[in-house]
Design a protein around this nucleic acid. Sequence first.
DNA 1: CGCGTTTCTAACCCGTGGGTCAGAAATTGC
DNA 2: GCAATTTCTGACCCACGGGTTAGAAACGCG
Lengths: 250, 250
Amino acid sequence: MARPADPHARISLVTAARAAFVSHGVSGARIEDITAACKLSKGAFYLHFKSKEQLFGELVAELRAGMDALLEHRKATMTGFFGEHGPLTARDVHQRTSRYEQLLALEVALDREVLGLLWRYRDVFGVLVSGSQGTEYSGVVWEMAHREVQRVQDDFEAVKAYGACRTDVPSELFGSMVVGTWLLVAQQMSKLTEPPDLDQWVRALHRLIREGSAPPKPKHGKRTVRRRLAARLNTRSTQSRSRSRRGTAR
Amino acid sequence: MARPADPHARISLVTAARAAFVSHGVSGARIEDITAACKLSKGAFYLHFKSKEQLFGELVAELRAGMDALLEHRKATMTGFFGEHGPLTARDVHQRTSRYEQLLALEVALDREVLGLLWRYRDVFGVLVSGSQGTEYSGVVWEMAHREVQRVQDDFEAVKAYGACRTDVPSELFGSMVVGTWLLVAQQMSKLTEPPDLDQWVRALHRLIREGSAPPKPKHGKRTVRRRLAARLNTRSTQSRSRSRRGTAR
DNA sequence: CGCGTTTCTAACCCGTGGGTCAGAAATTGC
DNA sequence: GCAATTTCTGACCCACGGGTTAGAAACGCG
């Protein structure tokens, strides 16, 4: 009874728009470029979307919905865990009981899911960070980041209280460290095309954050690696940038 | 012999431009707004700058120069230190000799300088992160970040080699953690008007990165804080967002 | 004061790109 | 084949803002 719309039109427009947003930002992307990439005319764009911003808004909403869902999931999982195993004590932490190990595994899994979402929306995420100025979404990432900093911070405070983490560091900075790490990693993902080994990343980051960069204490102080720094430093010149020479990194 | 230019014109233009860039990004800032803020006409802008981008470029160049200078300073300081004290050994690290403590103090001081620079250029930095798309400077922050990740990573590798830091974590991720933290902190600074206690921040971040969030091991396992998590959790509802309940943060 | 010189103004030009709309094209049901 | 109807096209409109320029204003100097 009428001409049917090209079924691919809408999705291919969205795909083309995502790519255009990545390379030019939301305001920099030209609608004619987007439609041209789909072999459509400019007018066709407005059959599917009210405006460029509205299209971007849909993408942002998807990302947000994903994040919110994961947050819900996290909450449910955690109350489930504590319902089953009862609350943790400082002992659990210091002795690394299996209950504690389970909790850690759970958190790794949850964070892995977040990273997976960030991977799938890495383009939108990148645009939110550095290509959304002038739109109503320009503050969204920083709101998200701030919310996460708050959450991590609150958790840290709670854990401080029962002695399972250090108390000589402001919780806010701890939050910034965790979220900042995640943020840069997400940003780095936005330049990749092949998915990295996210499982490994999450586990490694967890270890780092929990235990820092310090080495495990030497077995008995005897027979530790004694090679001198100088030896190492003098044979390093070939590999990469020729500066950098000293103890722990900053 | 001629009409002298208003001596404040140029600086006040730069100041107004910085503010405009912050709130609308480089391409979003309107030259007429900038000049109006200085009670000048649009044409006056072009007496002082070739274009908007060129003005922004000057600011970026200043920031870059500052960073480069600090990097030079870091290199010089470090070679000086090792020249005087000789190379470090794993023993220094494990036993925290005064020589090692001195090195740490040096690094804290150097990082403090970086943070100070970031504070002074926090507006430019913020614009580089999220308001420079479409300009030739859109990649600058990520280049800077990547360079720093490389540096930290190289250092970490070097330190791994003589056993003074853990070896079970990819150096690249360590670099991302350090730089990501710095990045988010810088971003957060861009919203502040009063300078925070940068010394404290740097010290705390150093501790966190080196030692992680784990608590110092309990004196002898006896008499550790035994209050249960549940107690804590149930009296926390007043203070802030009412979710969050469990072990170490993510 | 008037001349030369540089600063500064404000009207102007114009490319760009978002958004619109009349009409062509395609498709379905009859 | 023929309406009826919806999709799609592409020329058009127009606001916006970067950049220009003619000329007015300000100043130093003789």
